[in-house]
């Protein structure tokens, strides 16, 4: 088993550059839960020249819309959502200093290009392990857009949150390299 690297959030640029595709990590510190609707709001704020609800420099965004917490729990089930839906918004946030993203699934070429250019890393958490991952979240508060309900922007504090570096700041992608090791059937992708 590969060794696990403990990292702190916010994530400094020198740390971003050290992380390599395939590294197992545990994340500690503050991450911001932001998904579709809140991303759209952030970009609208930038378009209007407004200040974002949090300083995005060196931050990690977790693509998640958690379940409500049972009494006595910090948060409900809270696993990653599909990152690709945020691709249209992401390069601009990376340009402003966003250092890391936690999610699942493929990213666009534009996102990977921004990650290489400005230095950012894409972590994968296990999709569908929301009950397990919720145990690594030690506090939750709504930081903006409460009217968005499950899509509100949240400030989370995580402890030993397990993730894998999928795409590193040099653009290496674990989804392709991991798959190559096991693939022996190839689909014919046909045009309609």
């Amino acid at each position: 088993m590969d060794k696990t690297i403990s990292i702190n959030a916010p994530l400094r640029n020198d740390m971003v550059r050290q992380l390599k595709s395939g590294d197992h990590v545990e994340i500690n510190g503050v991450v911001y839960a932001v998904r579709d609707a809140a991303h759209k709001r952030l970009i609208e704020m930038l378009d209007k020249g407004e200040e974002l609800p949090f300083d995005i420099k060196d931050q990690i965004i977790y693509y998640v819309g958690p379940c409500p917490a049972r009494p006595g729990h910090v948060i409900g089930s809270a696993g990653p959502t599909t990152s690709g839906r945020m691709d249209v918004y992401t390069p601009r946030l990376i340009e402003l200093g966003l250092a890391g993203m936690i999610g699942k699934g493929l990213r666009s070429d534009e996102v990977v290009e921004a990650m290489r250019k400005f230095g950012a890393v894409y972590f994968g958490a296990v999709g569908g392990a929301g009950a397990l991952l919720s145990k690594c979240i030690v506090s939750e508060e709504i930081a903006a857009f409460p009217e968005l309900g499950p899509e509100a922007l949240r400030k989370l504090v995580v402890r030993n949150f397990p993730a894998v570096v999928i795409i590193d700041s040099e653009g290496r992608d674990l989804y392709s390299s991991g798959r190559r090791r096991f693939q022996h059937v190839f689909a014919q992708n046909r045009k309609m």
């Binding site: 819309g65 919720s134 145990k135």
Partner: peptide
């Protein structure tokens, strides 16, 4: 982890996945 996740969900009566 998925097996462990399912056990936690059943025991604590919380959602297996947040996308319910």
């Amino acid at each position: 982890e998925l097996v462990e996740n399912a056990r936690i969900a059943a025991r604590e009566r919380i959602a297996i996945c947040q996308d319910t």
